[in-house]
């Protein structure tokens, strides 16, 4: 089986090959390249729980590095990595549901929002995103944190671009309703619509 990786625009082919061989320096390069984006997705997906987001980030990179020798020749690292991110986030959510079903509620499942964030527009957006259903939330995060295309998100989630477009559309509609108070001053919703159409 061939082992040549498809080079990322941002990553040198040598780094990917080194990563496949288990070279710590190459692994570190991959980690540095994606650490913040993976952590951010996990953090927002898990509604701001830092500890859980760190666990998920660790799990993602450990899985990536351990399975690097089995990379498919035609696969892109980022696509594969985001698939692992999405699965890890959803797995974490499923694990929590089992905890809720069979045991006590974990203490951090409803994080307390600091008072300083209460009037912060960014905090409003964070809260609105966190209220989306998991399937919509992960699509929004992949789309806007990592600028993935519909095709890339579809590959990461194992579905079709049409499904992704549909989920994004639903997420937009929900967020537009929930964030209406953040509309720029002096513009009505109808004006906004006309502007969008034009």
């Amino acid at each position: 089986m061939g082992t040549v990786l498809v080079a990322e625009p941002e990553l040198d082919a040598d780094i990917l090959e080194g990563c496949r061989r288990g070279d710590p320096q190459a692994q570190r390069a991959v980690f540095e390249r994606y650490r913040d984006r993976v952590f951010s997705i996990a953090l927002h997906f898990l509604k701001g729980e830092h500890a859980a987001a760190q666990d998920v980030t660790q799990e993602v990179f450990v899985k990536v590095f351990r399975a690097a020798p089995t990379f498919r020749q035609d696969a892109r690292l980022s696509t594969w990595l985001y698939r692992i991110v999405a699965n890890a986030c959803l797995d974490e959510l499923r694990r929590r549901r089992r905890v809720l079903l069979f045991g006590d509620m974990p203490p951090a499942i409803h994080p307390v929002i600091p008072a300083a964030e209460l009037k912060d527009p960014d905090a409003d957006v964070t809260r609105a995103v966190s209220r989306l259903s998991p399937r919509l939330r992960i699509v929004v995060l992949l789309r806007y944190f990592d600028d993935l295309s519909y095709d890339e998100i579809a590959q990461a989630l194992g579905t079709t671009p049409g499904t992704i477009a549909s989920r994004l559309s639903r997420a937009h509609a929900i967020l537009a309703r929930d964030l209406v108070h953040l509309r720029p001053a002096g513009r009505s919703s109808q004006e906004g619509s006309h502007a969008a159409e034009s």
Binding site: H172, L175, A176, R183, P184, R187, G192, A195, A196
Partner: peptide, 9 residues
Amino acid sequence: QSLDPKDVE
């Protein structure tokens, strides 16, 4: 009322 799609993005 709802937010303009471009503002959401």
